[in-house]
Amino acid sequence: MATTLTVNGERRVSARGPMTALIDVLRDEFFLTGAKSVCREGACGACTVHVDGQPVVSCLAPIGTLEGREIRTVESLAEASEPSALQQIMEEHDVVQCGMCFPGILMVLTGFLRECPHAGRDEIKAALVGNICRCTGYERLVDAAAALARRN
């Protein structure tokens, strides 16, 4: 019955059934609560993690399909507690308010900027169409990501 997953480079075993959404296993079994369970239908992006390097909404991914895949969560973005360049620039730009959407936004932008390192504001906005932020009105976080892209 157990499902073996590779999460942030570690082998983890879930006792849940294979159709269980990844988000529930991450949060409830592995206590990786960075990814947030907000809409549970892929509209808000708050639960985004990486599967084999690609952003995936973990509310829609059953763990049974993820064996052998490399899962990474927001908790893995910082290395040795040193925030990633994206996390740092978000902090510098004073982007955060309530903060609930950021784990997902960071995972989406990390994946997106890897593929389009020189993206401009419009492309960044298009990449964020699946992420809801209710506090900030987006512009400042788009500015921060665009500033990072200019640095690349």
Binding site: G42, T48, P55, V56, V57, L60, A61, V108, A127, G130
Partner: peptide, 9 residues
């Protein structure tokens, strides 16, 4: 269609 996350799945 939909949004990038859904398009990816």
């Amino acid at each position: 269609a939909a949004n990038p996350a859904i398009r990816g799945m």
